[in-house]
Amino acid sequence: METNKTSAFIKKKRKVLGLTQPELAAKAGVGLRFIREIEQGKSTLRMDKVNEVLKLFGHELGPIRVDRSTD
């Protein structure tokens, strides 16, 4: 199973800052379960809650171009 970019980014930033999952959850104002779901790459998450976590790292969700061409 491939981890998505957002989950990998959040996990890496959390570790660089030396935060545990419970600490990140408390700082972002979200539940521990939500942090675990993000880091596990859950495909359906509330964008507003993801943005609360990303805000701690100076980021937010945004559109990314997807290459739909077939080779």
Rank of each mutant, 00 (worst) to 15 (best):
N4T: 01
E2K: 10
T44F: 00
M1W: 00
M1V: 05
Q21K: 14
K55W: 06
S69K: 14
K49Q: 14
K27P: 11
P22L: 04
E37F: 06
S43W: 00
E23L: 09
L56C: 12
D71T: 09
V66Y: 06
I38P: 02
F34E: 06
Q21D: 12
I35T: 09
R36F: 00
K12F: 08
G29P: 13
I64A: 14
L56W: 09
A8N: 07
S43P: 05
P22M: 04
I10R: 03
G58K: 11
N4L: 00
G31W: 01
V66C: 05
Q40N: 13
L24D: 08
Q21W: 08
L19F: 10
I10P: 06
N4R: 02
R65C: 06
K5E: 11
A25N: 03
I64C: 10
D48Y: 08
V50I: 12
E39W: 02
I38H: 02
K27H: 10
I35K: 05
F57T: 06
V16G: 03
Q40Y: 00
F57I: 07
L19T: 05
P63F: 09
V66S: 07
L56G: 13
A26E: 15
I64F: 08
M1P: 06
V16R: 12
R36S: 11
L32Y: 10
S43R: 07
L17E: 15
G29L: 12
P22Y: 03
V30E: 02
G58M: 14
V66G: 04
A25T: 04
K27S: 12
I35E: 07
